[in-house]
């Protein structure tokens, strides 16, 4: 029971790292980015290639995955995404689905459709036995790393000048520009940061969530739930939503495997209905 809980917390934290960039683009910037998972996929694949084909150690490979996804996000934001800010949701939906299709097709062409496997370094393998429960070393590692990221994000967005500027830019881009805030650059950097975190999550998640070309579509719903249920104004909301989702998902697969992902989709719909404005508190006020 406790083991399932720990596994659930680990995958929930991973989901948060993957999805938190989306909570900014979708939640704050009101951009329907269904392609968010594609950055996670990009990071995951880069990590796999570095590990398996070039013998790069695990930690540098994961870091490179995050940087690669961030760079990809930055370039795409500058060239394509920014053209669709403020356009209606259908345009954004079409665009981001198109992006998912293109990136999935490229990955499929380069790497094939099969699940990617990695071998974790020895120091991350095995389990610790506490007598009353056992904890996978890698799960504990995930919880530590993701926990540190959550803390850093929380402090970063709430306390720093960048956080204040981002919130100003999102609230009213025109006024923020008038105040001399470099809105365009802030959006670009934020997007890159979100994409980079997704890439990091994708790389860390190869072992836990799996990785194949359908990754962006398969986890799209998970990311949307995190954002929709968690709301957009804090780090804490999406974080709790991700934890809940991770625990429910792992417990569902463990205890009632015959219903599979049905639990998650049902949970999403129900939560959206109970809390339809978790995400939309801002949109409705306009």
């Amino acid at each position: 029971m406790l083991t399932v809980l720990v596994d659930g917390v680990a995958s929930g934290m991973l989901l948060f790292v993957l999805a938190c960039g989306l909570s900014v683009t979708l939640g704050l910037m009101n951009f329907v980015n269904l392609a968010h998972g594609a950055f996670g996929m990009a990071g995951g694949y880069l990590c796999v290639v570095l590990l398996n084909q070039h013998g790069v150690p695990f930690i540098p490979a994961v870091a490179a995955a995050a940087l690669f996804a961030a760079a990809l996000g930055f370039v795409l934001e500058r060239t394509l995404y920014r053209q669709l800010y403020g356009r209606d949701h259908l345009d954004q939906v079409l665009f981001s689905i198109g992006l998912v299709f293109v990136m999935s097709a490229v990955v499929d062409w380069l790497m094939g459709a099969r699940q990617q496997l990695i071998t974790l370094p020895a120091w991350l393998q095995g389990r610790w036995d506490f007598g009353f429960m056992t904890v996978g070393v890698y799960r504990a590692f995930l919880i530590a790393v993701c926990g540190a990221i959550v803390l850093a994000l929380h402090l970063g967005l709430v306390r720093t000048r960048f956080g204040a500027r981002l919130r100003a830019a999102v609230d009213d881009a025109v006024v923020a520009r008038g105040l001399g805030i470099p809105v365009t650059r802030i959006f670009g950097v934020t997007f890159a940061l979100g994409s980079g975190l997704a890439g990091l999550g994708g790389a860390l998640g190869v072992e836990v969530l799996g990785l194949d070309p359908t990754f962006p579509l398969k986890f799209m719903v998970y990311f949307l739930i995190v954002v929709a249920v968690g709301g957009a104004n804090t780090i804490v909301g999406p974080f709790l939503a991700a934890l809940l989702l991770g625990v429910v998902d792992v417990a569902g697969k463990y205890y009632v495997p015959q219903v599979g992902a049905f639990v998650i989709y049902t949970a999403m719909v129900v939560l959206l209905l109970v809390k339809p404005h978790g995400l939309l508190a801002r949109g409705a006020a306009r």
Binding site: V32, V221, A228, V259, G260, F262, Y265, M268, L272, H277
Partner: peptide, 24 residues
């Protein structure tokens, strides 16, 4: 029920539910 973003997600969620239901 909600705004159009919620609508997008609920339509997606319902379709996914049906897919999983048919699969199971």
């Amino acid at each position: 029920r909600g705004g159009d973003l919620t609508g997008l997600m609920v339509t997606l969620g319902i379709a996914m539910m049906l897919f999983e239901a048919a699969n199971r």
